[in-house]
Amino acid sequence: MAAQQESGGSLSAVLSPEEQAGQDRFNQIIADDSRIEPRDWMPEAYRKTLTRQMSQHAHSEIIGMQPEANWITRAPSLKRKAILMAKVQDEAGHGLYLYSGTETLGTPRDVLNEQLMTGKAKYSSIFNYPARSWADMGAIGWLVDGAAIANQVPLCRASYGPYGRAMVRICKEESFHQRQGFEILLELANGTEAQKKMAQDAINRFYAPSLMMFGPPDSDSPNSGQSTAWKIKRFSNDELRQRFVGMIAEQVKVLGLTLPDPELRFDAETGTWIHMELDWVEFKAVIAGNGPCNAQRLQRRRDAHNEGAWVREAAAAYAAKMARKTEVA
């Protein structure tokens, strides 16, 4: 039991000889730090965990387009408009790429999309906060994409091949996203008084939610152990969070702005960063659907989907007609 628990998930049923061979091979691949590929045998629980994690990630990319798309038409210079447009478009690409990756586990995209629209599937809670000012485009790029990078770089080595490879490609673009966000803030921080205020205000609002992107504290993260054993997860939530706080604590000095955290300090003894207690009650409430924008974000997704139904139907009908034509010819 102990060995199975370690890399195969809890298995109660007796395995058939083929399944046992698959399980053994799976265990070996994990032990070798090699990659599981879509055709390989894998434990159901592994498939389920990955499907949930990858689709949540894909949904986050798609919903995450909304707060930034909100500022494309109002971007204050044409160059910023172009960069923002390209960035939001990148996120759509990430979403697509991750949906394809998830499909290799056996769940089709329309099912995943349905789960998102009905609220059954979750996405990153930070996108349920509004993007109220232009400086939010800076804070989102710097903090939200920054936290995403810290989370995702270790995922480049995730044991499931399609996930790891998707992460490699996505991380390259995310680093550009973070930099453009930082540049927006840097420009504002060196601008007029009003611009500086705008930048500080955005950082104040996005700091805590971005730290929450790493998930609940290790003491309250029940699934982490299994994910680590499966080599999906390489570092704990708190490890990644502390690492991220350390990075932004340095970077904020370049901006000449501050992080809204009176308790923030580096503890030389443990070699870790100490930050303030985060409001996990709020975190859970936002995940549960009570955030300022949950209703709006989901409705926007549903509207786009419903209003596009006739387009997708027409495309399908046209494709069928063309297929019949080639058959006849």
Binding site: A86, D90, F176
Partner: peptide
């Protein structure tokens, strides 16, 4: 896993010019 490992894995990528957002 130590903070150093995370540092290392964060450094191992970073070709930010590879982005599709190069305008």
């Amino acid at each position: 896993m130590s903070a150093h490992d995370i540092d290392h894995s964060l450094d191992s990528f970073g070709d930010s010019t590879a982005s599709a957002t190069r305008v």
